[in-house]
Structure formats: structure tokens, C-alpha cells
């Protein structure tokens, strides 16, 4: 099915782990277990995953998904240091679909990170204060982007998937 093929392609691009699983793991079993694919679609996907360019596609995916946060919560990203990689992986698992409105995406990440820290996620001691400062600026920008004058939260409330 075309929709399943496309979903698999997007999921693979978003997940180097899934690519590795397909490449080295149970080989031809991983994708059919998750997606309804014709034999031809499976062959195409296996060829794509095994192509050296897949690593570049995964890298560009991550660069682009990080772009809203790099623009809007740069201090938080820097302060997270080596913790950033595992954290954004978890965030992207919770929100597999990036939001094209960069302030919504950044606001969503700030809320998610705040919850993680409150639940005991170990981060550098300066992170919470930087996060609160930048989250406030993002929220203000998000409110300002509502050009019909209504508060953002009256337009739509972000909800975890």
C-alpha cells in the first residue's frame, strides 16, 4: 500500500535506530511486521535503507527538526549539552510530527522538557532557569503570532499524542 510505504519511509528517516534494526537485525522481518507492504515496496525500502545516503537523510531530518529550538530556545539547547541528544529522541518519539509553526513547536518542547525535569530528569543546574526565561519569550511570540487578536490557548491547546 502506498500510504504504508510512505509512512515507513518517513519513520525510517526519523529514526536511525529503526534503520539500524532493518539493516542488521532480523533483516526482511522488521518492516513487514510494522507495515502492510507489497513485496516490491519492501524491496524498495530495503534498498533505500541500505543506501549510504540514508545516513545523510536521517541527519538532515534531525537538523531540520531541531531548527525551531535552535532558533528560539538556543540557551536551553546549549545548556543541556550532551543530554540534548537522548532528550530530543524521546521528544520526537512523543511528537513524531513536527509542527510547521516554529513557536508552537518550541512552546511544545518547552512544556515537555519542563515536565521531564519536574519528573526527575537529570539536567545541568542552570537549565531550569534558562528554560523558564526562554519559554516565556517563546510564549509571548506565540501569542503575538495570533493575528486575529485571540489568545493562543483559546485557539488551540497543545496536547501530547
Amino acid at each position: 500500500m502506498l500510504a504504508e510505504f510512505q509512512q515507513a519511509l518517513v519513520d525510517l528517516t526519523a529514526s536511525p535506530e529503526l534503520c539500524n534494526l532493518v539493516r542488521c537485525g532480523a533483516d526482511d522481518e522488521v518492516l513487514p511486521a510494522r507495515y502492510e507492504l507489497t513485496p516490491r515496496e519492501l524491496r524498495r525500502l530495503l534498498a533505500i535503507v541500505r543506501h549510504p545516503g540514508m545516513a545523510a537523510a536521517c541527519t538532515v531530518y534531525r537538523m531540520n527538526r531541531l531548527a525551531p529550538m535552535a532558533l528560539n530556545v538556543r540557551g536551553t539547547i546549549r545548556a543541556l549539552g550532551p543530554a540534548l541528544g537522548p532528550l530530543v529522541n524521546d521528544y520526537w518519539r512523543d511528537y513524531p510530527r513536527g509542527h510547521s509553526h516554529f513557536y508552537i513547536e518550541s512552546d511544545r518542547f518547552c512544556r515537555w522538557l519542563r515536565q521531564r525535569i519536574a519528573a526527575g530528569e537529570p539536567v545541568a543546574p542552570e537549565v531550569p532557569a534558562i528554560l523558564e526565561r526562554e519559554a516565556a519569550a517563546v510564549h509571548a511570540a506565540l501569542e503575538a503570532s495570533c493575528s486575529d487578536g485571540l489568545p493562543y490557548l483559546e485557539i488551540t491547546a497543545p496536547a501530547a499524542s
Partner: peptide
């Protein structure tokens, strides 16, 4: 280019990542 699938997407930045089409 493919940017969106039913349950996920690749970010569509101006010079971003579009996936190939069948």
C-alpha cells in the same frame, strides 16, 4: 517531494528534506 505521511512528517524547511516519490 514527500513531506507528510498519515502519522508523521519530515520538517519542510525552505531548504529542507523532501523524500523521494514512487
Amino acid at each position: 517531494n514527500l513531506f507528510i505521511a498519515p502519522r508523521g512528517s519530515v520538517p519542510n524547511a525552505q531548504a529542507g528534506l523532501g523524500l523521494p516519490v514512487i
